[in-house]
């Protein structure tokens, strides 16, 4: 007989438990690997592959494999591979920044509305509805055209048209958790509203919010691609969306000019979706083994 009295199970934090679940989901792990690879290539790539992405280096519209520039060149003779590597930085930066703005506005509005209810809720939800009924793309285009097409403005424009669903989800979670016994118990030992919102309710609402936040990165990347495609991108930078937009007129002569950046966007968004799915399962206590 082994000694069972000393073998008390080591306490496992909820996040450790979620990570264990996540690791069992192969698709999610694959997604994470793809995303990490894309991030590493985008960050380190420009130092290793030093061709300037905006210089004309070869004959325009060279197909892949016919020069030292393996993926070929675009209509101005710029190296596509260098564009992809450098564009990844911009695309990811805009994606993450816009997602951060989305989540910051969405969670704040949703938390306040759901926690306080009543008039505060009424007011904030009317504001949310106002943003919901705006045509997203059109509004973002107006913002970018008004304030200038630099990366921050583009991120802000994407953020302010996409926070509404995060706000609604946060509000619903807060309204559910607000009524729970442990919130009442925290109140009874003198927890003020700020503490209840940020330290008591928010951590309990975190799982679904983390999932939508992750997915909103993918949405933001697609949105940025859409804006760039329409020509609303920072003219001083290269992004995947802009590459697609630039090479669009030559799609019949040199399809690789739009195919490669499109593939990059597809892979990134797919990876993020897989990760989001995996997190959704990992945080779902019904699927979690005890």
């Amino acid at each position: 007989m082994t000694d069972t009295t000393l073998a008390a199970p080591k306490p496992v934090s909820p996040s450790t438990q979620a990570w264990r679940m996540f690791r069992q989901n192969h698709a999610a792990v694959l997604g994470l690997a793809i995303l990490l690879a894309i991030i590493v290539i985008s960050l380190a790539g420009p130092f290793i592959y030093t061709v300037a992405p905006r210089e004309m280096v070869w004959m325009p519209l060279t197909p892949p494999g016919q020069s030292e520039y393996v993926l070929g060149t675009d209509y101005l003779g710029r190296d596509l591979l260098a564009g992809l590597i450098n564009g990844g930085r911009v695309t990811l930066a805009v994606g993450f920044t816009a997602a951060l703005i989305t989540v910051a506005i969405g969670i704040t509005v949703g938390a306040l509305a759901g926690f306080f209810g009543g008039r505060v809720d009424n007011l904030l939800m009317r504001v949310t509805e106002f943003f919901q009924v705006l045509p997203n793309l059109l509004f973002a285009m107006v913002v970018v055209m008004l304030f200038g097409a630099d990366l921050l403005n583009i991120s802000i424009a994407i953020g302010i048209v996409s926070w509404t669903s995060t706000a609604r989800l946060t509000r619903a979670e807060f309204m559910r958790i607000r009524e729970m016994d442990f919130v009442k118990a925290e109140r009874s030992i003198g927890a003020a509203n700020g503490r209840l919102i940020w330290k008591v309710i928010l951590p309990n609402a975190a799982p679904p919010l983390i999932v939508v936040s992750a997915l909103s990165i993918g949405t933001a990347i697609l949105f940025e691609a859409g804006l760039s495609f329409l020509g609303l991108s920072d003219p001083n930078t290269t992004s995947w969306g802009r590459m697609i937009g630039d090479n669009r007129p030559y799609i019949l002569d040199s399809p690789w000019g739009v195919t490669f950046p499109g593939l990059c966007i597809f892979l990134t968004v797919l990876a993020i979706s897989l990760i989001g799915d995996g997190m959704n399962d990992a945080f779902n206590p019904k699927l979690r083994e005890r």
Partner: peptide, 21 residues
């Protein structure tokens, strides 16, 4: 609350915050 007067509730199963030790 807590300092001078505090309260113990009926439902110990649900009165503790599940995400903290």
């Amino acid at each position: 609350r807590g300092n001078e007067i505090s309260m113990v509730f009926q439902e110990p199963m649900t009165s503790l915050n599940p995400v903290y030790t």
